[in-house]
Every structure is written in C-alpha cells, then in structure tokens.
C-alpha cells in the first residue's frame, strides 16, 4: 500500500534543482510530484517519479546522495475540510505526520496528498477503517 519517494540531498545554491531536473529529463524520467524542504544551507528534495529505479541510478551517477522513503498517497475529498478530516483522524490515533505535500494530478474528483508518517502501517489501518482511499505506488507513478 506504500508508495516510494526519492529523496535527494541538495546544497542551497543556485542551479542545483535544475541540475536534478536536467538529469531526470536526460534519463527520460517523468516527475509526478515534487517538494523541497530547505534551510538556509541545505535542502531535501522529495520526488515521486514514474520510474524510481531509473531515477535513482541517474542521480547517483550524477553524484547526488539519494535515498528511498516509504510514503502514503491518500485521496482527499476536494472540498472544505477534506484534509482536516484526515489530519484529525491521524492525530486522534496518535500518528504523526512528518511532512506532506500535494500530488499534481487529481484522482477523479479527488485531490491526492503524499504523507510521510512516523508509523506508516498504523496510518494505513486508520485511513482504511475510515474508508479513505490510499493509492498504491504502481498506480501513483503512472497516474
């Protein structure tokens, strides 16, 4: 039920992001979603791509430090309170959201959010019990 995300360490300096997108373009990898968390000195670039394997190899070849992280992609009702409902649910279950960001594509009428939880398996149970729809990796990558 998990999806995999690629994380890249980047120094906070001009042109680094373009370097990454250039490498991925060159390798024929399509970026499905992207989020950058940064400080004044460095950042972590998180990517959902259509081909993890290809992306990882190309980036490592390009000298970047890359890691893979399990995340959960959840369909969110595209209406006021849709996201709040999910966060509320998780908070009540004692599950922390390490970070989250939006996926570019909608799934039908719903928005898609990417979550990194401290207890991903617990989170999946809570979400499933509430009838929320989790998108599996292989579907997410090609949505």
């Amino acid at each position: 039920m998990h999806a995999q995300q690629i994380s890249i360490f980047l120094e906070n300096k001009a042109g680094r992001l373009a370097e990454v997108t250039g490498i991925l373009a060159g390798a024929g990898v399509n970026i499905r979603a992207l989020a950058l968390a940064d400080t004044s000195d460095f950042g972590v670039l998180r990517l959902i791509v259509d081909d993890n394997h290809k992306a990882e190899n190309a980036l490592k070849q390009g000298g970047f430090t890359v890691s893979k992280t399990d995340v959960v992609a959840v369909e969110v009702d595209d209406r006021p309170g849709g996201l709040h409902h999910i966060l509320d649910l998780l908070q009540n279950a004692g599950i922390n959201v390490e970070y989250m960001y939006a996926f570019v594509q909608h799934s039908g009428a719903n928005a898609v959010m990417i979550f990194r939880f401290d207890q991903p398996d617990e989170a999946l149970k809570v979400l499933g019990a509430d009838g929320l729809k989790v998108i599996e990796g292989h579907r997410l990558y090609t949505m």
Binding site: F9, D38, F42, V44, R46, S67
Partner: peptide, 10 residues
C-alpha cells in the same frame, strides 16, 4: 552528506 549520513528529514 553521503548515503550513510543522509536522512530524508531536514
């Protein structure tokens, strides 16, 4: 920051 040092979390 090599792979051993890297964390996904800032």
């Amino acid at each position: 920051v090599g792979e051993r040092l890297f964390s996904d979390e800032v």
